[in-house]
Computed example of a mutant assay.
Amino acid sequence: MTQRDRDYSEKRDFIRMQIETSITLTHDGQRYEATCLDLSSTGMQVLAATTLQMGDKVQAHIPSEHSELKGLDAETEVVRVGTHEDGRQSLGLAILSMN
């Protein structure tokens, strides 16, 4: 079952942490600096100046502020896209794997 096939209520079974931190997205060799608004064990919401589409596979990197801890590196899939008046996108990214 894909993330898109999951029932809406099931998607909310995981706690979302409000984090508002810098994130780098990479898609087809293009890098985008963005803001991660929230994070759960299965996905994240990101605000970015991109033109990504549903189904796009995106590498996501959140750097660690602590030298002892590795940052988050994940392969994700765009499962939701919303467009803001300023042209930025609100992206729902499902985590497919952690690197």
Rank of each mutant, 00 (worst) to 15 (best):
M1T: 14
Q3C: 10
Q3G: 12
Q3H: 15
D5I: 06
R6D: 11
S9M: 14
S9V: 13
E10I: 08
E10Y: 12
R12V: 09
D13N: 15
F14E: 08
I15N: 15
R16T: 03
I19H: 02
T21Q: 09
S22W: 11
T24K: 08
L25C: 03
T26H: 13
T26A: 15
T26L: 12
H27G: 02
D28G: 08
R31L: 04
Y32E: 01
Y32A: 00
C36V: 14
C36S: 03
L37W: 00
D38I: 01
S41A: 04
T42R: 08
M44H: 00
L47D: 04
A48N: 01
A48L: 00
A49G: 03
A49S: 05
T50H: 00
T50C: 02
T51L: 09
T51D: 11
L52C: 09
Q53I: 05
Q53E: 11
M54G: 08
G55V: 15
G55H: 09
K57T: 05
K57P: 08
V58K: 02
Q59K: 12
A60Y: 10
E65I: 12
S67E: 09
S67M: 09
E68V: 10
G71L: 06
D73P: 05
A74I: 02
E75D: 14
T76N: 09
V79K: 10
R80G: 00
V81L: 04
G82Q: 13
T83L: 13
T83I: 14
T83P: 07
T83A: 12
H84N: 11
D86Y: 00
D86T: 00
R88S: 11
Q89N: 00
S90R: 02
S90M: 04
L91W: 01
L91C: 07
G92V: 07
L93F: 01
A94G: 10
I95P: 07
S97E: 06
